[in-house]
Amino acid sequence: MTKKHLITCSVIVVLVIISTLNIFSSAPAASPVKYIAYTPPALLLPKPAETGEAYNFADEALPLDDKKVDYKLQRSIAKHRYKIIQSNVLHAKADKLFPIIEPILKAYGIPDDFKYVPLVESGLRGGTSPKGARGIWQFMPGTARTYGLRVNRKIDERLNLKKSTVAACKYIKELYQEFNSWTLAAAAYNNGSVKLERAIDRQNEDNYFRMSLNRETGTYVYKLIAMKEIINNPEKYGYKNFYSYNQRPLPFMLAYN
C-alpha cells in the first residue's frame, strides 16, 4: 500500500513539474495584427492659375489637360524672360505704341490681345523680312494693297502705324469670320488662311492647341500669350526699372516727373 502511495505521489509530482514547464516555455498567443491603410501625403500640385487657367488668348482658354500645351507655353514664356532678352526695349516700345493701337482694335471689334501681334511679328521694329513683309504688322505688298494700303516706289503705308493697324483689323476680322475662332485667326494671320484650312481638313481638327502645324505657326499663339504675360507681369519675369503706361503714376507724382 505504501509503495502504491509513493508511486502515485511520484506520478503526480512529475505531472505537476511537466505542467509547470509547459506553462513557462510556451509563448503567449499572438495578438491579431492590425493593418492600417497607408494614406500618402497630399501632392503639392500647383494652383490652377499656375497651370494655365489664367492664360488665354482673346478669352479662348488653353486646354489644361494637355501636358504638351502646358510645356509649349512654359517654354515660350521662359524664352522671353529678362535673363534671355536682357533688354526692356519691348516694354518701352509697347508703352509708346499700344495707346495708338488699342483704340483702333476696339473700334473694329478686335480683341485687345491682338496688340501683341506686332511684338511677335516684328518686335515693333517695322523692318522688312527676307520674304518682303514690312511694317510692324509685317504685311506682304499684295495683302497690304488688298486691305487698303498704298504700296509703291514712292510710298509704303505699311510703315504708317495707324493706317497699317486699320488694315490689320480688317484682315483679322475677315479671318475670324472664316474660322470662327480668334486663336485660329491669329494662326492664319501668320500662316495664311489657305494653308490653315488645309491643315484643319487634313487633321479633322479645328482647335489650334490640338493641331499639328509647322514650327512657326505651331508656336505662334503661344508666343502671343507669352508676350502678353511678360508685358503685364514684368517683375515676375525679371524686368525691372521701367515705366509702363499700364501702371500710370498717381496725380501727385506727376509734378515730380
Rank of each mutant, 00 (worst) to 15 (best):
Lys83Gly: 07
Lys83His: 05
Ile84Val: 15
Ile84Tyr: 08
Ile84Trp: 05
Ile84Glu: 13
Ile84Met: 12
Gln86His: 13
Gln86Pro: 00
Gln86Arg: 15
Ser87His: 10
Ser87Phe: 07
Asn88Asp: 11
Asn88Tyr: 06
Asn88Phe: 06
Val89Arg: 14
Val89Phe: 11
His91Arg: 03
His91Phe: 13
His91Leu: 14
Ala92Arg: 14
Ala92His: 11
Ala92Val: 07
Ala92Trp: 04
Lys93Trp: 07
Ala94Pro: 00
Ala94Trp: 09
Ala94Leu: 08
Ala94His: 09
Asp95His: 13
Asp95Ala: 15
Asp95Leu: 06
Asp95Thr: 15
Lys96Trp: 12
Lys96Asp: 13
Leu97Asp: 11
Leu97Trp: 12
Leu97Pro: 00
Leu97Cys: 04
Phe98Met: 06
Phe98Pro: 01
Phe98Gly: 02
Pro99Leu: 06
Pro99Gly: 08
Ile100Glu: 10
Ile100Met: 12
Ile101Leu: 14
Ile101Pro: 01
Glu102Arg: 15
Glu102Ala: 14
Pro103Glu: 13
Pro103Gln: 12
Pro103Val: 10
Pro103His: 10
Ile104Gly: 03
Ile104Pro: 02
Ile104Tyr: 03
Ile104Arg: 03
Leu105Ser: 02
Leu105Thr: 02
Leu105Trp: 01
Lys106His: 09
Lys106Gly: 06
Lys106Cys: 00
Lys106Val: 03
Lys106Ser: 14
Ala107Met: 12
Ala107Lys: 15
Ala107Glu: 15
Tyr108Thr: 01
Tyr108Glu: 04
Tyr108Pro: 01
Gly109Arg: 05
Gly109Tyr: 10
Ile110Arg: 01
Ile110Ser: 02
Ile110Cys: 02
Pro111Lys: 09
Pro111Cys: 10
Asp112Ile: 13
Asp113Tyr: 06
Phe114Arg: 02
Phe114Pro: 00
Lys115Tyr: 05
Lys115Gly: 01
Lys115Phe: 05
Lys115Leu: 12
Tyr116Met: 06
Val117Glu: 02
Val117Lys: 01
Pro118Leu: 05
Pro118Val: 01
Pro118Asp: 07
Pro118Glu: 06
Pro118Ala: 06
Pro118Thr: 06
Val120Ala: 12
Val120Ser: 04
Glu121Phe: 07
Glu121Asp: 09
Ser122Lys: 03
Ser122Arg: 04
Ser122Asn: 09
Gly123Asn: 12
Gly123Tyr: 10
Leu124Ile: 14
Leu124Ala: 08
Arg125His: 13
Gly126Glu: 04
Gly126Ser: 08
Gly126Ala: 09
